[in-house]
Amino acid sequence: MTVRDAMGILDATVLVGEDNLDQEVRSACGSDMMSDVLAFSKDHSILLTGLCNPQVIRTAEMLDIVCIIFVRGKRPDDAVLDMARDRDLVVLSTQHRMFSSCGLLYKAGLGAGAFGGAL
């Protein structure tokens, strides 16, 4: 699916990266613990999180993550959003909780990548 598809599924709003919504995404990872996210390395991924600090952006940067979705209606401050803009990331915000967000994307066909290896 594309980032735009994921956005529609989660009724999400765009905070950063309106021009990059047609990128393809093949897997997703949901966590508030960045080291757990760093154990997961897949191409063309979405990161779903409720954590709003600069390290979320850095974690996404290290992993070449395409899109960060903040769940539960969270919105990081402008300094964090500027960091995302500098790195060409797409940042979305959804009112759905973590569990529902992951479930909705999974149901729509977005996988978690290879089970066992990277997870």
Binding site: D32, M34, L38, S41, T49, N53, Q55
Partner: peptide, 18 residues
Amino acid sequence: IRSLGFGAGMGLPNMKKY
């Protein structure tokens, strides 16, 4: 530190893994 998203005990294992 946990509230900042780290301290999950994955740092050194991740460093070795990659």
